[in-house]
Design a protein around this nucleic acid. Structure first.
Length: 159
DNA sequence: GCCAACGTTGGC
DNA sequence: GCCAACGTTGGC
């Protein structure tokens, strides 16, 4: 039996990479570089599979919320910026023979209407979403199949 | 700009 | 291994 598809929410600051930027990229695919949190890294490194569903979330902006649909588009590979002395993501203690930070590529599939964080909080079916938990700061969080279905259905209804 | 929450660091 | 200090995240 094929591996079951998983779902994720991935935060991006739109002034760095918005859903429009991702859709405009070559093959609508962007490298999810710069993650420097072990929990978020582990999701990409150990759990994501090509084809997993991704909610593309805009954060640290005037209207935070789900802004598009995407999918995992590569297997994990070492984030090259950890070895780039000129990158703000440079990690002096990362060794090429044993990379510390791993990443995937993400392919944008569609821009959607914005489902703001207020609308997410107001949906009874979504109260357990990790992103809505008090004090949550993780940039990558798992989404359950039920939560995914609720959100994509909501988007389908509203165009 | 505020500040709650949380991860990381480093002295002990 | 404890834990206080510090830095960062991110909604408001």
């Amino acid at each position: 039996m094929a591996n079951k598809k998983s779902y994720w929410l991935m935060k991006s600051e739109p002034h760095e990479c918005s859903i429009d930027d991702a859709l405009a990229a070559s093959n609508a695919t962007v490298p999810w570089t710069g993650v420097r949190n072990y929990q978020a890294r582990n999701f990409m490194w150990r759990q994501m599979r090509v084809g997993d569903g991704v909610l593309f979330y805009h954060s640290s902006c005037p209207e935070p919320g789900v802004a598009g649909i995407a999918e995992v588009a590569s297997t994990p590979y070492p984030d090259p910026t950890q070895f780039d002395r000129h990158s703000k993501y440079f990690d002096a203690s990362a060794r090429p023979e044993e990379p510390r930070w791993w990443m995937v590529d993400v392919k944008a599939l569609a821009k959607t209407r914005l489902i703001g964080i207020g609308e997410l909080r107001a949906a009874a079916a979504l109260t357990d979403m990790t992103i809505l938990r008090r004090g949550n700061r993780l940039s990558i969080t798992p989404v359950t199949a039920d939560q995914w279905r609720h959100i994509t259905t909501r988007l389908a209804r509203s165009g």
